[in-house]
């Protein structure tokens, strides 16, 4: 491997994944088909090879995902030979457990929490592996590798366990579960460099393509049936790519010609914009993500 630091990060992540398989009875890997979860899947494959990955994958589908990502999700799962559990935010809406947001910024992103917590309870998962990274956002920067959540899925930073020397304590009380973040120490650049190095395939939305867009307050959002279009919105068609892929309603597109992993890497570094800069859900307030995390958001 050319990149010494990537090997060091890979070693660390594989150690964590193996600890999860050994310390928990029923772990699950949260898999959206996005780039971080694709790297996670790859690391899990490496950790347990030649055996199969010893846990299921799960996706909390908001119903507002990019169809390209969903297609890709299903292909990878098939290739890896793992089970995929899908739970739908739509079901939580139909059961009146959550209420759809209204207005032009309406998004289902925050609603995922309820569906996720229900699924954890339904299957009795004691550990949920996620692809969150500490460089993404300020409150993520304080997240442990093993993050203990109470019965309500809540994150309490004051109750976080210290993790000296990365010795991981996965012992939990009845009803508690743990969110595990094996790629905590990876940055966005590391993810892309790894994708390049390991020749990982990604959904097409990550690369430059033509798309019908809605221009709103200077940002481009994918045109879709899920978006509440208002009068001031302008509809345009442009060559764009997405840097993070969340819901279609809250991920902004970049005007870009970068159609390969190499070009994306260069463009990301040169742009100097942060990755989540295009996440409309984080922009609601200075502590938007922290508030959601306390409530059990991923």
């Amino acid at each position: 491997m050319k990149n010494k630091h990537l090997l060091e990060l890979e070693n660390e992540s594989i150690y964590i994944l193996r600890e999860v398989a050994a310390q928990f009875k029923k772990p699950v890997l949260l898999f959206s088909g996005g780039k971080d979860s694709i790297v996670m899947a790859r690391l899990a494959q490496k950790a347990f090879y030649p055996s199969k990955i010893p846990f299921s994958f799960m996706h909390i589908d908001t119903g507002h995902n990019f169809p390209e990502t969903i297609e890709f999700r299903d292909e990878i799962v098939k290739e890896l030979g793992v089970d995929l559990i899908v739970r739908y935010v739509q079901d939580s809406v139909d059961q009146n457990k959550v209420q759809e947001e209204s207005g032009k910024y309406a998004s289902r992103n925050a609603l995922q929490t309820v569906t996720l917590l229900d699924a954890i309870e339904e299957f009795g998962f004691d550990a949920c592996l996620g692809g969150a990274r500490r460089d993404e956002e300020k409150s993520r920067a304080k997240e442990r590798i093993f993050s203990v959540r109470d019965d309500f899925g809540q994150w309490d930073y004051k109750r976080q366990r210290p993790e000296p020397f990365q010795i991981l304590n996965g012992r939990i009380n009845f009803g508690e579960n743990v969110r595990v973040f094996p790629i905590s120490n990876w940055t966005e650049e590391d993810i892309w460099t790894y994708i390049l190095q390991d020749n990982l395939q990604l959904p097409s939305v990550y690369f430059a393509h033509n798309r019908k867009l809605v221009k709103r307050e200077g940002a481009y959002i994918a045109y879709s049936d899920y978006l509440n279009i208002v009068e001031s919105d302008e509809i345009e068609e442009k060559t764009v790519r997405f840097r993070t892929v969340g819901d279609m309603t809250c991920t902004a597109a970049f005007v870009s010609e970068a159609d390969t992993v190499e070009k994306v890497l260069v463009e990301n570094v040169e742009s100097k914009h942060s990755e989540r800069g295009a996440r409309i859900d984080d922009k609601r307030s200075e502590s938007a993500l922290e508030e959601r995390k306390k409530g059990g958001y991923f």
Binding site: H5, R134, D135, K138, S139, A141, K142, Y157, Q160, P162, S184, N185, T187, E189, D190, E286, S287, E290
Partner: peptide, 28 residues
């Protein structure tokens, strides 16, 4: 300065991690 409590108190209260890189090094 990360968490809300810190912003209120103007102090740092828990271990936080930051990442940056130069041409030859990646720092945590």
């Amino acid at each position: 300065d990360g968490l809300m409590a810190e912003r209120e108190q103007g102090i740092t209260i828990d271990v936080a991690n930051m990442y940056f890189s130069t041409k030859t090094r990646k720092f945590i």
